[in-house]
Design a protein around this nucleic acid. Structure first.
Lengths: 213, 213
DNA sequence: TTTTGTGAAGGAATTCACAGCA
DNA sequence: TGCTGTGAATTCCTTCACAAAA
């Protein structure tokens, strides 16, 4: 496929989805997979799988399928999850704790190197993962010192934009915002807003359309 | 707008996004908002806002804008978040705890009435919200007894499909799956897969494209 | 005058269908 | 024969541009 083809935003998200069953197949010793099977596991169209992969190269063998190990490696390389990323997190409530302690993320190479909260009570507390909760005032200094690449926001929504501004000011280039508000940042900083209450509302909408038993 | 118009899937998610600034405006005593302003808050096109709303009715006043209170009420009604929903949750790890204790969800009318885990150690433990962790064996009985409408899955991925099947069998009509695997259910049960590790991978991809300083 | 509601235009993403290759 | 890679067709979604209404 042409190197110049525009890659749909959604294609990137699907690559991550494709990697999930690939990990399982690899563990189970299955070495080859067809686009049809992979599509079935992920609930998408087989042509979609082939096209998504073709944006980045020719990874398959005609008449055979895709080598599981190779394909997984390629996807990890495309998504840049074949390397470690250094992150910090701001807002150590329940959600913040859940994310910082998550085994799954740790295994994926997301390394949290600092945790912040504005609540004085929490300062100095050691988390199970070993990090010590720091006051937000130290954010700028620690981000630079520890070379933090991504900031994860798990504060209440009314603090999210201020925290984003702090992160941008400290030189962070990527922000993952879990609070239910859309934060903005100047060009040069990539924002991912992950309001997952939206998914509850989406589900409620679809359920309300379905005839009740 | 015609009642027969097909409503884009994404429009529903945006309605939820529109509701976020509306809540803030309401609290601040602002009574009227234009599509342009609302669009700006949410980072979308003003025509998009108007079209999304027009799928469901004529909520605005030409030359004026939208009444904040009315619009918020309409959106809540459309998303069916103007009523309470009864939920259960399976998998009481860090993420499960974070979700069940979340103030935000509670305020939105999502009422958790049962919590399950397969780990015997946890059975009988009382959560801060007052629920007692139950063995998964009791799921079917309790779902029916408590009239659970939505099941929330926060188990490891290799258990997610089995739990989904249990939920469907017990008569649950909606499932929100937070584990990093796509679960399936027969028609009649609505599934929302919310793999948010995908958002990390998405961010990593975009950061790896950006020239490093 | 201002801002909504919406048909029409435009753009983007998905799916089809088949050529190309192992 | 079987399955990938991909141009073409299709479907879906967004944005434009302006008539309609307050």
């Amino acid at each position: 496929m042409k190197k110049t083809a525009k890659i749909p935003y959604a294609a990137i998200e699907r690559l991550a989805l494709y990697s999930r069953p690939l990990r399982v197949l690899l563990k189970n010793g299955i070495t080859v997979i067809s686009s049809e099977k992979l599509a079935e596991y992920c609930g998408v169209n087989p042509a979609q799988v082939r096209k998504d992969l073709a944006y980045f190269g020719e990874f398959g063998v005609r008449g055979v399928g895709y080598d599981v190990t190779d394909l997984l490696r390629e996807i990890k390389s495309i998504l840049a999850t074949d390397r470690d990323w250094t992150l910090c997190i701001i807002g150590m409530g329940n959600l913040g704790n859940a994310i910082v302690e998550n085994e799954n993320f740790r295994n994926m190479g997301y390394r949290f190197v600092a945790a912040f909260d504005k609540d004085q009570e929490k300062h100095g507390k050691t988390l199970p993962c070993g990090l010590i909760i720091q006051p937000v005032e130290k954010l700028r200094h620690l981000v630079k010192l520890l070379n933090v690449q991504i900031g994860v926001i798990t504060t209440p929504p009314d603090e999210a934009q201020r925290v984003t501004d702090l992160l941008v000011d400290a030189g962070v280039k990527g922000v993952l915002n879990f609070s239910p508000t859309q934060v903005k940042a100047p060009k040069g900083c990539v924002i991912e807003n992950v309001d997952f209450a939206v998914r509850f509302e989406n589900l409620a909408y679809h359920l309300s359309k379905v005839p009740r038993e």
